[in-house]
Structure formats: C-alpha cells, structure tokens
C-alpha cells in the first residue's frame, strides 16, 4: 500500500468572527500525484495550502505531510519541515529583490547545509533546465514575470523536495508565460514530482494535474481523478 504524501483529516479553520475558511476538510494525496485545488475567491484554497505548508495551523483536525504531523510543529520545527520537504511557488514570485537570481535559487540549499560548490552546481543545472541560466547574475527586478516565476520554480526545486506547492503560479503572468509555467509543472510531475496547485484557473488545473479537488465555502465540493495530465506541453 502506498504511503500518502499528504493526509488532511477533518481540518477546520476560522478567522475572527467570519464564516469558516475551512470546514471539516479531509483529503489524501499520494506520491506522484499532481493535484489542483480549485475554487472561487474565498473558498478556502489558500488556507488549505497554508495548512499543508505549515504556515498556519488548523483550529481542529490534523495535517500530516510525508509522515510528519505538520499541525503540531513549533515555529522552528515548521521551518525545518519546509526547508526539507517543501518547495513553494507563489503568485507574486516572492523573490528577494536584493539577491541575484543564483543567490535566490541557492538560498534553500544554504539553509539545508548543502556544500557551496554542490549548491552552485545544482542551481546552475536548474537554471539551465529552466532556460534562464543567462540571467544567473541578474537581479529579479530586471526579469519579466515569466522569467521570475521560472526562478521561483528553480528555487522551489533546489532541495529536491518531495512535495511542490504552488499558489496561483500563473496568476500574475501573461498568457504565454502562464502556459510556459503550466508546461513546466506538467513536465515535473511526469518525472514523478508530487505537486499541489492552488488555482481558480480551470485550464491550468486540467493542463498539468492528475486530480482536481474543488472547494466551495471551505468544504470539498468535488474530487475528480483524471489519471494523467491532460495536455503535456513539451
């Protein structure tokens, strides 16, 4: 039997006096899956992603990732969990503007204690694979949106994380750049990378994921497994 990569059981989260952001959500993700979490604004997608990433804690329920109870971790343990288990891609890239592309990409490896030379080599490989090696010494401010997101992907993959989380990865990109990133994620999943993508873009969900979970008002409205990514781009 395959050990699940993510197990969420009866997770609930409520902010202040408002309606629950998440209400009794349970799901399981196995290694190699590419899961899209869909839903309109305010449906609880980002809250669920934050719980999986250990950035937030559920009011009730449990979240287990790669065998680790994420919802009980301290801040420090949570940081160690993220650096060892996760790669994260954000809508607005979240690159550090005062570091070069290479320095941004290398940062997670430095945190994990990877030797400098190996880290540089790995970063170089990633940048080359993602087609942005010519920008290695540039600062993020000089890159286009698509290029910045490729840098973010490279940074997320730096420590070869078992799980890749992406929060609206194409939300800030033009169509061409968006398709570029979609192709990238599909290719990664084809290589066995487990991916969870939060999006409200149905096209993105269908293009690069093997399963689609729809949230409405903090609850799972549907959970559909498609088997393989619909349209590999490359």
């Amino acid at each position: 039997m395959t050990v699940p990569m993510i197990t969420v059981r009866a997770a609930a989260r409520q902010y202040d006096e408002g309606p629950p952001a998440l209400d009794d959500v349970s799901l399981t993700v196995v290694p190699g899956e590419a899961v899209a979490i869909l839903g309109p604004s305010g449906s609880g997608k980002s809250t669920l992603l934050n719980l999986i990433a250990g950035l937030d804690r559920p009011d009730s329920g449990t979240v287990t990732v790669n065998g680790v109870r994420v919802d009980t971790l301290s801040e420090t343990a949570s940081a160690r969990y993220r650096r060892g288990t996760l790669g994260m891609i954000f809508q607005f890239f979240n690159l550090l503007d005062d570091l070069t592309v290479t320095e941004n990409v290398v940062l997670p490896a430095q945190l994990a204690g990877m030797p400098r030379r190996e880290a540089r080599r790995r970063a170089g490989e990633l940048l080359e694979t993602l087609g942005i090696d010519r920008h290695a010494g540039a600062y993020p401010g000089r890159l286009s949106g698509g290029e910045r997101q490729r840098v973010a992907v490279a940074r997320a993959l730096m420590n070869r994380p078992p799980l890749l989380l992406a929060d609206e990865p194409t939300g800030a990109l033009d169509t061409a750049s968006g398709e570029d990133v979609i192709g990238l994620l599909a290719a990664l999943n084809a290589d066995g990378q487990t991916i969870v993508v939060v999006t409200h873009d149905v096209r993105l969900a269908r293009s690069c994921t093997t399963r689609t979970i729809e949230l409405v008002d903090g609850r799972v409205a549907s959970d559909v497994t498609t088997g393989v990514a619909a349209e590999p781009i490359r």
Binding site: L55, R80, L107, P108
Partner: peptide, 16 residues
C-alpha cells in the same frame, strides 16, 4: 514583513 515572510517560507527559523 514580506521579506521576513519569504525567508520563513523558505525555511528560516525564527531565531535565524
């Protein structure tokens, strides 16, 4: 704050 958020998301501990 944003910078701190990124650092923590990447795995920086609070003490770091």
């Amino acid at each position: 704050a944003r910078r701190i958020g990124i650092l923590k998301a990447l795995g920086f501990t609070p003490s770091q």
